[in-house]
Structure formats: C-alpha cells, structure tokens
Design a protein around this nucleic acid. Sequence first.
RNA 1: GGAGUCGUAGUUCAGUUGGUUAGAACGCCUGACUGUCACUCAGGAGGUCGCGAGUUCGAGUCUCGUCGAUUCCGCCA
Length: 593
Amino acid sequence: MNFSKRTHTCGELNIKNENEEVTLNGWVSKKRDLGGLLFIDLRDRYGITQLKVIPENKDIYDTALKLGQEYVISASGKVLKRESINKNIPTGEIEIELTAIEILNESEVPPFVIEDDVKATDELRLKYRYLDLRRKSLTENFIIRNQAYQIVHKYFEKHNFIEVETPMLMKSTPEGARDYLVPSRVHNGKFYALPQSPQIYKQILMVSGFDRYVQICKCFRDEDLRADRQPEFTQIDLEMSFVGQDDVFEIVEGMFNEIWKEIKGIDLPDKFIRMSYDAAMSSYGTDKPDLRISGDMKIVNLTETVKGSEFKVFNDALESGGIVAGIKLSSKEVSRKIIDGLTDFVKKSGFGGLGYLKFNADGTVQSPVVKFLNENIIENIRKDFSAESSDTVFILSGEKMKVFQTLGQLRLKLAEDFGLTDKSKYEFVWVIDFPLFRYEADDKRFYAEHHVFTMPKDEYLEFLDSKDINEIESIRANCYDLVLNGHEVISGSIRIHKPEIQKKVFGIIGLSDEEAKMKFGFILEAFRYGAPPHGGAAVGFDRIIAILCGLNSITDTIAFPKTLKASSLMDECPSEVSKEQLDELGIEIKQKK
RNA sequence: GGAGUCGUAGUUCAGUUGGUUAGAACGCCUGACUGUCACUCAGGAGGUCGCGAGUUCGAGUCUCGUCGAUUCCGCCA
C-alpha cells in the first residue's frame, strides 16, 4: 500500500519549523468541528499535533469530516504559527494546515475513550490492552522500562559481566514456589518446569568459570497473586565468583545509582544502610521496613518497663513467655473513633484489644489501662518513647513475633491514615543476617528460609550438626534482601560451594542422600569439580519499574499482564486444548472437585 | 483455600422502605456554528440491571448459589 510517509512525529514540531512542508502519520485523537474550520488532534507515541482543515480545500475538508476516533491517517501540510497558543502541549505553538489527507485505516468506535486519565475498569482495559497501551501515561511506563533495560545492560557490560541465556524448559525442583509444568510429548508422562528463577543454572555457570553472569530474564511461579506479583515476571539475575556479601552489595548499589541518576536525576547514597533481620523485626515488625515514615516510628519493647504492673493482660503475656511492646504516634489528635478502628484492626490479627496512652497537653495521661499501671511505670513508658504532649503510645502484648508483626502493620496503617509517608523519598536498606531455616510446627520440619543453597554464616557452622530446634533456628545465613520503600526489590545470598556443608543442610530439611541426588544430583555433581566461592542476587525488575513510575501495582509495567486469577483477558488464556493435543501428550483431564 | 469491595446504557456512575415508563454525565448518530484545543448549541438512538435460583401480588433493590475484576491473609523470594 502506497501512502505518504511521515517526515516528523507528532511530538516534535514547534515554531522553529514554521512554513515547512511536513507529513505526519498517526491516530485521530480528537476532532473539533466548528462548522467551517475543523481541527484534528493527531496522536502518536511521541505526542499530539493539531491539524487544521479549511472548507476552501473541499476534497480534504470532506474527507476530514468523515474521520472518526482512532482512524489512522497520513496528513500533509504546512506548519503555521497558531492564532491562539495551547501552552499545555509542546507542539502547542503550531498547527498544520492540510494540503493532503489519506485515511490509512478506519476504526470502530473504541469501547473506552483513550485519554490520560482513564475511566474504564481494569477488566475492560485488560481486554482491550492494545487500546489502553495507546494512552500516554501507560506508554511512558514502557519508555522508562526500556531506559532501565539499556542502563542495566550497559552497566553490567562495563563491569565485565557476561549475559547468558538459560533454559526456559528445565527440571522441576522441589522446595520454593509451585512450578508451572510443561508436559513432554517425546517423554510420555514426564514434565519440564518453567524456571522459578535461573538459580541452579547461574551457579553452574560459576563452576564453568564464567565468573560474572547477568541476565534479564522471565521467571514463573504458580502461586496466588497480588498487586506486586504476576505469574510471570522479570528479574535481573546476577551471580559472581570469588566474592563475599560486600562485593555483591557494591555492584548492586552501583546499578541502582546509575538507574536513579539517569532516569530520575537523583543521586542515591554510594552505600545503602544495613539492618539485621532481627533488628528489622524488633524495630519495624517486618523484614521489609518502610523507612520513609516521618519520625521513623520504631517499635519499643516495654517488657522490662511494665514488669510488676497490676495489669492482668500484660502479666499473662509475660508469664507465657510473651512480650509487651508499643509504638508512638507523634502529635496527632486521636479520637475515640480512630482508636476503635485501630482496635478492630489488631483484633483481626487475634489480639483481644489495643492498649494506648494519650499524653495530654495538660500533663494528664488518658488510658484505659492507666489504673493498672503505677505512676512510675507510666513515667518510664513516657521515657522509653520520649513521649511529649499530644503523643499517643499504642501497646500490644502477647507472643513475641505476633506482637512485633502486628505493631509493624499498625505502623504502616497509622502512616497511611495520618499521611506520614514521604512519597517523594527513595529509602533503600539492606536487610542482612536472615535465619537459614524456618521451623514449621505443623509439619514438624525445617524449611530453607531463602533457598537450599544459601551459605550459613561461619560462626554458626557448628550448629549444622545440632539436634536442638532452637539452635538450628538461630543459625544466620549469608543472605540478604534489598528493601526499597517497604518493598523487597532484591533477594540474594552467598551460596554453599562445599559439598559437606550442602549435605548437612539437606539433612536438616529432611532431604535424604537419595532424594537429594534425584532432585539436585546434577548440581551436586557439578560442585564436585571445583566450585568457586560464589554468590549473587536477583532483582525484581517489575517492582523497580513500578516504583520508578510511581505505581502501586506492577500490572502497568507489563505490556500484557494477567489478572489475579492468572488469566489474560485479551487473548483469553489459559484455554482448553483439543483432544488430539492431549492424546499426543498422553494426558487425560480429570475434573477437579 | 479464607475475608472484604465491586458488577445497572458503548463507558463511568446514581437509583430512596421492594412499587407506574430504570436516570445523569461522557461517548455515539443527526443538524447548526470559521480559532477550537474537555469547542459550543439543539435534537436523537442506545438497557439480558453479570448469570442462575428463591422469597414476594410485585425484585436493579432482599436471600442463596455461581462467574468475573480487585484488595488483603494463607501461599510466594
């Protein structure tokens, strides 16, 4: 098909191009028909340019009158200075007076109007994703995403990393997330798995001597979804040989510095602050603390302070080995209604109620528990929190981790309700020294907290031989997360490269030699041939982009995302397949009850 | 697997205590209009109230089930 090809995009013409003869190609975004004069806003991904048609050019005028929304056209004409300037768009000083117009394609009336502030529901937007993607605000996310790809590739190339593609069809491995399975036609009854991450391959590449590996890759996890979890997502996966934790941190910190510098024009600190897992849990009640909250609002352990009080709830908690702890809300008016709301909130986590102390301006303390606490204790609580007038301290008592976690959730809720989070900040923090194992009382067994190849810290190696649950739980690992604004954006570890340590770890999670050999035999065998000390990390790329774009969900950082039930509304997948396809695979569908 | 919210015109929503012909805005169609840029003005078309049962003389409205979207917990690095 012959048509007049564009000489410019719809975003670049300005007053400097005055009197030039140009051709634009794009979509009809808006038509304003004044009866004689006719204006058309022509859109492409670069911007919008106003076209002007006058009735004197009868053929062009008649064609232009027929244009509907989202028609694709080629428009030629002369760049003129506008009589009235539109300051809202970069091309607002000029317009094109048309000398030729071609309709390249018509469009049906779109199911929703394509404009920046979209009104359609998620469902409709996903069904017509190609239309949604025409919106500037959405297109911009992908421009940022593309910038990030380029920066990342350049950065790792500069630091001597080799980008290697690893298989998408791999062996299903136990532990961790549920695999997406792919049936094998050639091997009847056998399955491949889509990678949850290229973990094993990248470690084997270290054995191969690749030394520094990176890959921007897709990963798949068949688990229930959230706003920040899609069934398929993208990681920047990296691994390095002959390194310790600090070396990995340095590379990652450098990468974030370049991304933020180039995309946001922001200088991040050279080094990100570090916090132990234990400190994160006891101060923020979570392993992903959001450090943007004004006043920090750390959890304070009041267990010692309230010892000897008359308050049965506290004493019961302490007697059963629990704790009493609280957080402070600074200088906010806290009404009865707010307290009731917060009480309901903690009740959902299984607490009987929420204690509080309101330090009034007149020096009095308002609290339902004040009659059980003597003046000394109240004064000490005030000191523990450095509480001043019009501050409120919220207190919970019970099992230690539960108290910390619920106070952590309360902290986030208070920050949200009272607008205490500085949304303009980017607060990075390394959370380090994670536990190696997690004990599940239900199954009476240990699970690897990160993954089974994580190296214990040297000082805990002896506990690998322990039979004591507490000792084993106390083992800390060379394992780290990078948290940004309360989101986990990186997870990584230094790996086990010694077969004897690996064997002990398998032992603790209850994997026998035979099972280990069956499931991980190939990597264990590889490790017998001189595995270098190595470690790495995986960056949640979609989450980074979401944060860079100021989005709460990763959905709009992904061109064709899936819903929370893992379907794609546009192409209607997953879908049934023919009996022939199933027969070839030797698969029969059993109705799930 | 569990809890919450939502589902009414092409779209976003309103719809009183269960009661006559289910409304508005935007979009769409027709007409008028030569400096608009959310053009304006006049007129018009457009409804399986997600789907299925039930209660009732009568259901958009109440009950149960179901499907879909979404948020959170469990799950997941």
